[in-house]
Design a protein around this nucleic acid. Structure first.
Lengths: 370, 370
DNA sequence: CTGAGTTGCTGAAAGGTTTCAAGAAGATTG
DNA sequence: CAATCTTCTTGAAACCTTTCAGCAACTCAG
């Protein structure tokens, strides 16, 4: 993907470690010494395999003295349980995965925090994977996670109609869709009403008297981008404005860099044809747009009002504090994880579609006089 | 950890999915139907187990016609390779893990991008784990990853002297320390010279005529916090100033919220005693500090100059564009992953300590006239 | 002292894959 | 046509745990 936006300083010093230990010379003690297994522990402790396993899995069933012996043996041998073998035999994994759309977007890392919180409360661990808005990577990760037989997958998908996605639950891997509503009877989903969010944003701008408004977002394969735009259109319709008043500026991704690019395009338009306001599909775009426009001499909000989406922590700290549509980030993640846990443990689980309501947070980028 | 900084909108709509499919009533078709394994595929394709395995692992060795039969059988049975079994037998994992200090910090997600880039180039996948500056979570994840027998671990540790960390390589799990220099002969490490970084920041402020300077960072167990402070002290010493001129404001974590707290404390000081400049251990702190100080009426940089660290993308887009110390983020991750790959594949691997050089990026937050 | 009930431990089977020595069939050479 | 190579395929062993029926030893009531 894109290199860092600014050139990286690359002067490096490298030093081989001196290895004071090295005595005999070139020979390396590689060879991955056979890690001690339950068998070795059992031998060392003078008990059977089954007993070692009991110490591991049902400590209450083994006598304190035996347990102590076994634990001592484990410690002295540096025993590390082989999770592959455990999982193969026991058939269950203690791991949840969250496949994120963009790990660089603070919105998703906040969602991830909620996920982790709920998972930890249930004694599970979370692995994060980053599809980075790349469908191939998403597919690769889905395959990998299914092969790993993780307990379940949380995903903010690029394309929620992917066949891969739909096949997973039938094959035994529960999937919960996060930040997208979906109702195919195969998944639970937890979302925020993006159409309403788009509507809120545009209604706010219309109320401030803006007439020609840009919608900055893309690619149009991403559900969030589509819904927010549709919400925007709906707000225009309700206000009796023609749909052409929403000027679409399509971006290649939902990133700050793309936002800057859009800013460049927007600022390049003659003042008469330029929209007086921009609604961005997320805050990263909005921040990039804002930065570029300001540096090209546009005043925000006088020349261009800007509304973002997600209300990430950085939105309030921007050059011009950003009006944004807030979503309950951690709650989204927590709820999704709880649904997943229910699905994988409760035989009477029914798929649910939970929808939260977004909220407009008005700041200087639209109402400068504030 | 901290809840979202602002209350989350929590009105939710929940709807059970209608399950048009359900015919017989209450019975759920749970039961995790026995997933087809190599055995079933072999039977369906009329070949032996070994042949199926060959199709999977050495396709070139099996005749095209047989291969086609096997692949067809796989597809029709929905075969999904059981990675636990594969790994148990083959003894090797195709997974790398990056245990991050704070997934919410864009600096680390940029590092993660570099890691992933290098891993993908080598045909491996990356799982991200977030210790979130919590030592217990870090320990849990290390145990988990060792039990999973991942191919290797990249970590930005909370405490690089942890015994757990040091034991891993001897037991067969290579570990590369990222963003910390370490020279214990057990790990490779890839770092940026934080002492120099601190020095650059303070030298810059001294040059601008600042005399009383705050150092905002913490907790003091984190290596980066210590080194950057030490660099700051060194710069003062070199300039012949007494060390008391560096006023330490210790924070509980390296977050925006903590930065705001520090801003509150700083702005509360009487103007005569208040430092005229602040150097923050990272950009999140700096952004929080900036935001709070501005909202409390301090002018930046006139009343308070601010220098951050990391030069994350948001630094340039801040209320007052932030002077910051830039580090080669993706390069850091890429290099670390490459060292890890070398360690796990090259029998002649020697541990290395790679150090990059940081670079000061001056913006408005220190030199307003710019 | 007998019989039933507890408690703690054992040993073998099972889980799904990969590996590898060895065999079968077909192609090539002299 | 025999001998030698190649090319494919096979079947069983091995990887490390967990599970579970069963056994031994002990306790306790009658």
């Amino acid at each position: 993907m894109a290199a860092d936006s600014a050139p990286e300083s690359a002067s490096a010093t490298s030093s081989r470690s001196s290895r004071k230990t090295g005595a005999t010379g070139g020979r390396r003690r590689k060879a991955k010494q056979h890690a001690a297994g339950v068998k070795a522990v059992a031998a060392a402790a003078g008990v059977s395999l089954g007993t070692v396993s009991n110490v591991l899995n049902r400590p209450e069933v083994v006598s304190p003295v035996t347990r102590a012996k076994v634990e001592a043996a484990m410690a002295s041998l540096g025993f590390v349980r082989n999770e592959s073998a455990r999982q193969l035999r026991a058939g269950s994994s203690r791991i949840l995965a969250y496949l994120m759309l963009d790990a660089g977007n603070p919105f998703f890392t906040d969602v991830a925090k909620g996920v982790e919180e709920a998972a930890r409360a249930a004694g599970l661990s979370v692995f994060l994977c980053n599809s980075n808005e790349d469908a191939d990577r998403e597919a690769d990760y889905l395959d990998l996670l299914e092969q790993q037989r993780v307990q379940g997958i949380l995903i903010t998908p690029i394309d929620q109609n992917s066949s891969r996605l739909r096949k997973l639950p039938a094959r035994g891997t529960p999937v919960v869709v996060v930040d997208r509503a979906i109702d195919d009877g195969e998944h639970c989903s937890v979302a925020v009403n993006d159409i309403l969010g788009g509507e809120l944003a545009i209604a706010h701008l219309l109320e401030l008297g803006h007439d020609r408004i840009a919608y900055v977002g893309g690619p149009n394969t991403i559900g969030q981008v589509i819904d927010r735009r549709d919400g925007a259109r709906r707000a225009l319709r309700k206000a009796g404005k023609p749909p052409e008043n929403l000027i679409e500026l399509t971006t290649g991704a939902l990133t700050v860099a793309e936002g800057r690019g859009a800013g460049q395009r927007l600022a390049g338009l003659p003042a008469t044809r330029r929209p007086t306001a921009a609604f961005c599909a997320n805050d990263l775009l909005a921040l990039g747009l804002l930065q570029q426009c300001v540096s090209l001499g546009l005043r925000v909000p006088e020349d261009l009002a800007i509304v973002g989406y997600d209300d990430i922590e950085f939105a309030a700290a921007a050059a011009v504090p950003l009006t944004s549509v807030r979503q309950p980030r951690q709650l989204l993640g927590r709820t999704a994880a709880e649904l997943l846990l229910d699905e994988s443990s409760n035989p009477d689980h029914e798929h649910q579609r939970v929808t939260f309501t977004p909220e407009l947070v008005v700041r200087t980028s639209t109402r400068g006089t504030l």
